[in-house]
């Protein structure tokens, strides 16, 4: 990518960030809440994209790590009465550990088998959470989780989430651009050749899963901060599919694509469901149209249009 394009992107990011910073000054509280939800969901989708888009790993049950992160915080605060900051730090760690465990099991397999095994392991965790009424609250979930005073108003939660998500996205960007990220993309494009030149393919993929799980855990923790409740649907397979959709919708060979996808899905869900009960049908139809006409996603389409063909190699394909 040349200097000009890079500076243009930097300018765009700075402008968006400024807008996000001043928005709570005049926007109604409801919109700030939706915006916070979009940020949390965007982090979740982008963490999936590290494994899926950059690693080419069939991460079919990513929501488990999100849910585990959220439940870890909720349980530590309500059942163990740990201070909030310890729980907030431990949540993503637990998610990363879960990622290591599930990843270690699945990494022996590739493609569809990998995805299926991950679905079964993830479903095991989901069904335990769903059934263990005494500990996790079962299908009721856990509500009214006590939060520190500074996270009580919508605006302050919003700024907290904005700060954390910004830091995480920078970290994710640096990871993607690091030698590790480059190797990961090389593995996606040609695992055999990477193996041949001495790259430990499995180890890199496992690492990607753990990192992705960590950031999904962060998103889960932020969700608890925003909603002050957790429920088993957070680890259900359908949510995994929804995050998947966000990556596709935005474009999974671009860095910011999943962010856009998350924004579109959350906004659609919020505003379309005010007018009709058939929100999922509209989402389904949009998806089908997208698969037929915009297979690179919205962001991929924008990138393709905004750059000469030779320079659009940034996305990987």
């Amino acid at each position: 990518m040349n200097r000009f394009v890079e500076s243009r992107w930097l300018g765009a990011v700075a402008a968006v960030l400024c807008l996000l910073l001043i928005l709570p000054l005049f926007a109604p509280e409801f919109y700030i809440y939706i915006l916070a939800l979009i940020l949390v969901t965007a982090l979740l989708a982008m963490s999936l994209n590290l494994a899926l888009g950059y690693g080419g790993i069939y991460q079919f049950h990513h929501a488990v790590f999100y849910g585990v992160g959220a439940y870890a915080v909720a349980l530590m605060i309500t059942r163990a009465s740990l201070p909030w900051w310890i729980s907030f730090i431990a949540g993503p760690m637990v998610a990363a550990l879960t990622g290591l465990l599930i990843g270690w099991f699945c990494i022996r397999l590739t493609k569809l088998y990998f995805g299926m095994l991950q679905i079964s392991l993830g479903s095991l965790i989901w069904i335990i959470v769903y059934r263990w009424y005494d500990f996790t609250g079962g299908d009721n979930g856990i509500h009214d989780i006590p939060m520190p005073v500074f996270l009580m108003s919508t605006n302050s939660v919003y700024y907290f989430i904005l700060a954390i998500v910004a830091v995480c996205l920078i970290a994710l960007y640096l990871i993607v651009k690091s030698p590790f990220g480059a190797t990961l993309q090389a593995i996606r494009d040609n695992p055999q050749r990477c193996e041949a030149v001495g790259v430990n393919v499995r180890q890199h993929q496992l690492m990607a899963i753990v990192v992705a799980a960590f950031f999904a855990g962060v998103a889960g923790v932020l969700f608890v901060g925003l909603e002050r409740s957790v429920f088993p649907n957070m680890l259900f397979w359908v949510l995994s599919l929804e995050i998947f959709v966000m990556c596709l919708l935005g474009g999974w060979f671009t860095f910011a694509g999943p962010l856009l996808g998350a924004a579109i899905v959350v906004a659609l869900r919020t505003f379309v469901s005010q007018y009709t009960d058939y929100y999922t049908m509209i989402l389904g139809i949009i998806l089908i149209l997208l698969i037929f006409f915009l297979p690179e996603g919205v962001m991929g389409f924008i990138l393709e249009k905004s750059m000469p063909r030779t320079q659009s190699s940034e996305g990987g394909r």
Partner: peptide, 16 residues
């Protein structure tokens, strides 16, 4: 992956 997502989208439409 596109095919999998396609069937998911079809499922969403059918459910509604």
């Amino acid at each position: 992956l596109m095919l999998i997502l396609f069937t998911f989208a079809v499922g969403l439409v059918l459910n509604d």
